[in-house]
Nucleic acid binder design. Sequence first.
DNA 1: CGAGTGACCGCAA
DNA 2: ATTGCGGCCACTC
Length: 105
Amino acid sequence: MNDTLRIKVESLVATIPVGRVMTYGQIAALCGSPRAARIVGGIAHYGDPELPWHRVVNKKGGLASGYHGGRHTQKEHLEAEGVVVHGEADSYWVDVEELLWWPEK
DNA sequence: CGAGTGACCGCAA
DNA sequence: ATTGCGGCCACTC
């Protein structure tokens, strides 16, 4: 099977509905490697720029650090989709428990 | 081809 | 409570 982590991760991220978010650890766990959260981050950095990586947040609900264009851009995208983003200029966070989305649960 | 790095998470001291 | 380290896979230099 050619279903590498990267393919699975990209598939999941591409399936995240608008107004919903997922965590790196969650995506990694669904891909079969609960410890491969860093890989998800790596794929996000090297992977498809068309995928909604701005809907992917860390366990703390905080937005990623090296987003293309800056964290500010990511917050704008989330708010534009109806997601309530809290925090200040360098510390954005969302209600992960409220917006966390599961593909089959 | 070989080695290092990466947008993370969880546990231990 | 905080700090430090290990672990996973893929991609770039």
